[in-house]
Every structure is written in structure tokens, then in C-alpha cells.
Amino acid sequence: MGKLKGFFMTLFSLILFLTGVFYVIKHDRSNYMGILYTDYNDLSKQEYQKGFKTLDECKQWAYDTADGQELEDGSWDYECGIGCEIKDTGFQFRKWSCENVTKGNLFSELKDRIRDLSITDGDTITSSMTITGHARNMFYEGTFPVTIVSSDGLVLYNGLAVTDGDWMTEEFIPFTIEIDYFDPQGSAEGLLILENDNPSGLDEYDFTYVVEVVFPE
């Protein structure tokens, strides 16, 4: 009788434990998490906070934290999302994957410089590949630089995006990237990086657009 009672007590404790785990998981995935990038030019500099019940609370945390650290306007940004998890630790900075993501002004402005890109996160990139899209405020004399790097930061390819349109316009114009041969150097994945051509050389005018890509086996 004592053994049977002990068995049921153990089973009851296990049920309570699993119930608590499921509650925490469900609770965590219903709340917002904030990620603060304290230096927009170095995304490895991050702070994060979990448990916000609303998007507004998450945003307010980001602004309050930035104010508390006296970060200059335009030097930092944030993301707020639900169910955030580390997506890939192989890159040089922690990357998060979240649901219902809301991004700050700098991220939004950056995102709005590139549209209709024919390659998206998770796509395979190969030699002798043509990539197309539309861009604005990225060009100088009709081109902007393109780089492919491996997950450990090794530069695999340098090239140019080219347009035949009026590159000085503020409107979106089409561009083409002709990827020549490149060697993945044994890496399975990496980044396609589109950078605005910045003849001023001033960091505050630099912008990059990053796509996570997969290399063929």
C-alpha cells in the first residue's frame, strides 16, 4: 500500500511539474520580448528583456533603456516580438527569430530601401546566379556593393548591383546582381549583404541589407 501511495505521489508531482512547464511556455509565447541594439553599426551589442504584456510596454522599455544609457538618436534601434528564440549562433552576432515582430525606425527605414528582392532568407545562392530587385538611396553612379560571407565571417564574393535607371532619383528603380563563381569554402550557410554606396565615407550614412542564404552541398 505504501509503495502504491508513493507511486501516485510521484505521478502527481510529475503532472504538476509538466503543467507548470506548459504554463510557462504558453505564458512566454503570449508575452512580448524586447531586443535593444545599443549600437546600430554593431548588432552584437544587444540587450533584451522578456515578459511584456503589450507591444507598447516593450517599446517603452526600449526607449527608457536607451534614455538611461544616454544613447544618441539614430545610433540604436529595437525589435519587439512574441515567442523569440535564438535562430542561429553561428553568425558573428546573436540572431533572434520572433513572431509578430515590430521594428524601430532605423530598421523600418532600412527595410524600405530594398523591395522585390528575388532572393529571401533561407534561399540557396549559387554561382552564375542572377538576383533582381528594386532599390532607392543605395546607388552611386548606378551601382552599389554586394558581398557574400560565410557564417564565420569569411568573405566569399564581392560584386556590384547595377541599374540602368536614374540612380539619383528618390524613387525605387530596378537593379540586377550577376553572381559570378564563388567557393563556399565548406560552409553550409552565410549572408548576402547589400550595402549602399556611400562616397562620403561617413558612418552615419552607411546602410546594409542582409539576407540569410544557404550554399549548395
Rank of each mutant, 00 (worst) to 15 (best):
N41D: 10
I25G: 00
P216M: 06
Y209G: 03
K50V: 05
T89M: 04
F107C: 07
E195C: 07
K103P: 05
E189Y: 12
H27E: 09
G153T: 12
G165M: 06
L36E: 09
K45C: 03
S108E: 15
M129C: 00
K50P: 01
L106E: 15
M168Y: 08
D39F: 02
W61C: 04
V155Y: 13
Y209C: 01
F175G: 02
Y23H: 09
I114V: 05
Y48I: 00
P145R: 06
D64V: 11
S187I: 05
W61P: 03
H134A: 06
D73I: 04
F207P: 00
G68E: 12
D88M: 05
L194C: 04
I25W: 02
Q185N: 15
S13N: 09
A188Y: 11
G201D: 14
F17G: 03
L11C: 09
R113F: 09
Y140V: 07
E178F: 03
M33P: 00
E189Q: 14
N137S: 14
I114L: 05
T65E: 15
L43M: 05
Y40E: 01
Q60D: 14
R113H: 13
F172M: 09
K59I: 14
I173C: 11
V155E: 15
C80I: 10
H27C: 04
C84D: 08
A135D: 07
A66E: 11
Y37W: 01
D67E: 14
W96H: 08
G153W: 15
D39Q: 08
E109A: 13
K87Q: 04
S128I: 00
V101F: 10
W76V: 01
A188Q: 14
G90T: 14
G165H: 06
F172G: 01
S128C: 00
D64A: 15
L156P: 05
P216D: 15
D67F: 14
G74K: 09
G34Q: 04
G165A: 15
F144V: 03
I82A: 09
D180V: 00
L55R: 12
V210C: 00
Y37G: 07
I177L: 06
T102F: 14
N196E: 07
T65R: 06
I125E: 01
P145Q: 09
M168C: 02
K111L: 13
F172D: 12
P199M: 10
N105D: 15
F139G: 05
A135P: 05
K5H: 07
E170Y: 10
C84P: 08
Q92K: 07
Q69W: 11
L11H: 04
D56V: 13
D152W: 11
K45Q: 14
L4Y: 04
M33G: 05
Y205V: 04
L55H: 08
T169R: 00
F22S: 07
V146G: 04
P184L: 10
F22A: 04
W76M: 03
L36V: 06
T19L: 12
K3D: 07
E70V: 06
L4R: 11
D116Y: 11
G2Y: 11
A62K: 01
F139K: 00
L55S: 15
L18Y: 11
K5F: 06
K50M: 03
K26G: 10
E72R: 08
I25K: 09
W61F: 09
S187E: 15
Y181S: 02
E57G: 11
E57D: 15
M9Q: 14
M168N: 12
E217G: 13
D164H: 05
F91L: 08
